[in-house]
Design a protein around this nucleic acid. Structure first.
Lengths: 232, 232
DNA sequence: GTGGAAAACTGAGTGCAGTCAGAAATTCGC
DNA sequence: GCGAATTTCTGACTGCACTCAGTTTTCCAC
């Protein structure tokens, strides 16, 4: 019936009728992602049904699942795309003459600030991220690897300028920074910690600082160790 | 009808009839957990239906949800109980005269070995753990806090015997150890890394080692930094 | 005991993610 | 152009987690 209405809206030029079948698969996938993005952010993840998304994308309810494996995969696809952009922008805007720590916090802080825009969606995304199905696994893996590789590059650069011990295993440190990012993010979004974003970033900075300890050269002022809040 | 059959099976002693109503709520909850445990481990999480669990526990399908908030919460409750026991046992069997690192790896290694018994269930559990609903939040929080507190105690003990710098913030380090544990566990169970358990524990040890760097006193042999596998 | 309020339970019902048998469109050999 | 083979699409259908209006059981005041 949607189809009939569409055709009827151009009754005078039937040869120009751009039916659903003419739009190709890539276009269809793009429309699916756009529809889902709009509905998820307007109504929230649980309140959005896959049928709605399909309708808004102009396809049958079943067709949706020829393009995505599940409702959750759909969310991950959307976020993944945007996170890619955020990470690229963050690495492209690194602070000048800053310490490695500041550089790394700059990048992960950007990701956290991005998640803050819609905590409800971010919560679901972060929950699913590490458990994506076969379809998205490669791209999620590539995203994480890219993040870690570029983090390691910052550490290598710091080595080159003598800020970090040349023996420091950059790749491993980068892996651990990501681990800390994910774990603290989950605690922030998952369990009900009402921590402000700035506080959360500060915690992450502290964690990264710990991670870099023992590798950063030169006098390191013994920062006053703030006692952690009971369940922060 | 199940009720009628039960009553009919003891027709000669009606006053002794132990009907469903006599068993109290605690008993009922215990039966629910037992039924779920058996079915989850025999058939797996997705293949088990809540109706089956209710039937096996001898209650109505709807009654189940007066005791647990969701199927996932049910799994978390079960695992939580068992993890509590595993953690207690691990802390009670700490290696003698060992380093802090060995002590901490002993505890988290026990948890990992526990998860290995059924990776399918562990996968779901670890995914849900940080995102439990209101009902289990307090108990999960208490479990995590207990783990971190006892870890911090090991660090404090190491301080007392001069192994660790007195200025090291034990509580924060313990928090970060847990973060590393969770994040690496998710990567192990979530994304399809076919890492053997021993390898996984070795990775965790390396992570904890990094975390303790800068705080452990005395000469620390620069271990050959194994390059991390491309996507391990 | 008895009546009546409160608590606990029930299973038919609801809504939705995901499936699948068949329809429609597309491609291709001739 | 035409039929057959192949790909793509569809929406009615299925199965299951979870709900809720109605029922049963328990508690308690008298």
């Amino acid at each position: 019936m949607a189809r009939a209405a569409l055709a009827a809206s151009h009754p005078t030029e039937p040869e120009l009728e751009v039916g659903r079948r003419q739009r190709n698969k890539l276009d269809k996938r793009a429309r699916i992602l756009a529809a889902a993005r709009e509905l998820f952010s307007r109504k929230g993840f649980p309140a959005t049904t896959t049928a709605e998304i399909a309708a808004r994308a102009g396809i049958g309810a079943g067709t949706l699942f020829l393009y995505v494996a599940s409702k959750e995969d759909l969310l991950v696809s959307i976020f993944h795309e945007e996170m890619d952009r955020v990470a690229d922008a963050a690495f492209a805007s690194l602070p000048r003459r800053a310490s490695v720590l500041d550089e790394i916090v700059h990048v992960y802080g950007a990701l956290i600030r991005f998640h803050e825009r819609d905590r409800g969606l971010a919560r679901v995304f972060v929950k699913e991220l590490m458990f994506v199905g076969e379809v998205n696994r490669a791209s999620v893996g590539a995203f994480i690897d890219g993040l870690q590789r570029r983090t390691a590059e910052r550490i290598e650069a710091a080595k080159a300028r003598g800020e970090v011990d040349a023996a420091a295993p950059s790749a491993e440190i980068a892996v651990h920074c990501f681990a800390l990012y994910i774990a603290l993010l989950q605690r922030w979004l998952g369990l009900g910690t009402a921590l402000a974003t700035a506080e959360h970033v500060a915690r992450l900075r502290l964690a990264f600082d710990f991670q870099l300890r023992g590798f950063v050269r030169g006098p390191r002022p013994a920062r006053p160790s703030r006692a952690p809040r009971a369940r922060a």
